[in-house]
Design a protein around this nucleic acid. Structure first.
Length: 420
RNA sequence: GUGAGCAUAGCUCAGUUUGGUUAGAGCAUCUGGUUGUGGCCCAGAAGGCCAUGGGUUCAAGUCCCAUUGCUCACCCCA
């Protein structure tokens, strides 16, 4: 048996309602904040991600689905959306048409990691990018929109964590200080952290090794070494969040594994999923557009994992649906009625009723059991004595009442059903 | 890439500890319970190479080994 590839999932009809519901909330919140949807290709030139996300990051160095196409060009299934959106932004000169572009997306992403709770190889993210302004209002707006969406879904067990990484120049000064502090402990660091010492020293803060954490507890914090401009930017973000009544906490250890972040970074974590608890993450990326060949345009954005969110919703039972219903089920009482039955079904469907019928030639009892299972409001019996008299029997499945109607009066049948 | 756990009907699971005739249950499916009427109830049916391949044994769903798959966790991320 051929099965779905490791880390991929079928979304079956029974799962579709909750996905549609999630998508409708995403769309309505982004629309309220006047973000416009953008769709970009699922694959891009490999170089886009290598440059945009950073060669040394885990995503680029070990998680991408990269392949050569038939002409020998190296392509990659997108592991995240920001690089592609920025590429499209530059390619279509969106900044020349509008000073600030507020964009959102809902799309599948691909990363070759070992699957676990809340982590798949093909997964879905929604997110937003605001490109063209350095206003801290937008940093806060990202967090607010994500939070509004989670709230609308009924999620409770949430924690907003924010941090500031400052600008590259002040960060370089700080990195030197951090290196000086860590030098005496170097031998005690975990192997992974030793590597990071050279590649991205800030990431040592992310280590969960006990020994590393002990050392990092007294390390100088980036947040205490921010330049004045970064500090006031961060202060404004906090102030806006507070005025929007978004509870948050500052996590000076929150660094994040993508190279492009500057100033604000944030995550919203849920206590209702497994160990992969970040429902969304994002931050400001003021150098990215220029890095990818555009003008020096600032940007900020976030991405949220939809499977993870739905997992949290299920665990919290944050919303539920009524059983799906149909309007009418046609029961064929005797053989030979099929043409009339189907014609009636089509005409009622054209009037807007959800109509189903038997396609398996089953007994009346079996058809009634099916009608009941489908939660139909009405059943229309076709055949027998009444049909011979030119009538059909309409049964209300809630109260069991039945009445006869002229067999060709579609309008009468329609209104008898519609009135209830 | 590393570690641990799991694998029996469409689904959820008994049975494995202490090997012993034809492998069970609930749910779901199907058929009936007087000629043409659902739900609840009752009766019955169908559905399994017990993940795959080797081994131990008189005998393996049960013990051993390998393989594959899944799950969870690490790394990291959404």
């Amino acid at each position: 048996m051929i099965k779905a590839v490791t880390g991929t999932r079928d979304i079956l009809p029974t799962d579709i309602p909750k996905w549609k519901y999630l998508e409708s909330i995403i769309k309505s919140v982004f629309t309220l904040y006047n973000y416009k949807e953008i769709r970009t290709p699922v694959f891009e030139e490999t170089a886009l991600f290598a440059r945009g996300i950073g060669e040394a990051t885990d995503i680029v160095s070990k998680e991408m689905y990269t392949f050569l196409d038939r002409s020998g060009e190296s392509l990659t299934l997108r592991p995240e959306m920001t690089a592609g959106v920025v590429r499209a932004f530059i390619e279509h000169s969106l900044d020349k048409k509008q000073n600030l572009n507020k964009l959102y997306y809902v799309s599948p992403m691909f990363r070759q990691e070992r699957p676990q709770a809340g982590r798949l190889r093909q997964f879905h993210q929604f997110g937003a990018e605001a490109i063209g302004s350095n206003d801290p209002l937008l940093d806060a707006e990202m967090i607010i929109m994500a939070y509004e969406i989670f709230k609308a879904l009924g999620l409770k067990n949430l924690l907003v964590k924010i941090n500031s990484l400052g600008v590259p120049s002040s960060r370089e000064d700080y990195k030197k200080k951090l290196a000086e502090y860590l030098q005496p402990y170097f031998d005690k660091l975990s192997n992974e952290s030793k590597k990071r010492f050279d590649t991205n020293i800030l990431r040592i803060f992310d280590s969960k090794e006990e020994e590393d954490q002990k050392i990092m507890k007294n390390a100088p914090l980036l947040i205490d070494h921010l330049d004045n401009e970064s500090l006031s930017h961060f202060a404004k973000v906090k102030q806006v969040l507070a005025s929007a009544q978004i509870p948050f906490e500052i996590d000076a250890m929150l660094v994040r594994g993508l190279d492009y972040y500057t100033n604000t970074t944030f995550e919203i974590v849920s206590g209702s999923v497994g160990s992969q608890s970040a429902l969304c993450g994002g931050g400001r990326y003021n150098g990215l557009v220029k890095e990818l060949g555009g003008d020096d345009v600032p940007g900020v954005g976030f991405a949220a994992g939809m499977e993870r969110i739905l997992l949290a919703c299920e665990n919290e039972k944050s919303f539920s649906f009524n059983d799906e219903t149909i309007d009418l089920y046609l029961v064929t009482i005797e053989k030979g009625m099929e043409n009339f039955v189907y014609k009636t079904a089509v005409e009622l469907r054209r009037k807007g009723l959800i109509v189903d019928l038997d396609y398996l030639g089953r007994s009346v009892k079996a058809q009634m059991r099916e009608a009941n299972k489908l939660n139909t409001g009405f059943v229309l019996f076709i055949g027998g004595e009444e049909y011979a008299k030119g009538e059909l029997v309409l049964k209300n499945m809630k109260n069991g009442n039945q009445k006869s109607l002229p067999k060709d009066d579609i309008e009468k049948i329609f209104s008898s059903i519609k009135e209830n």
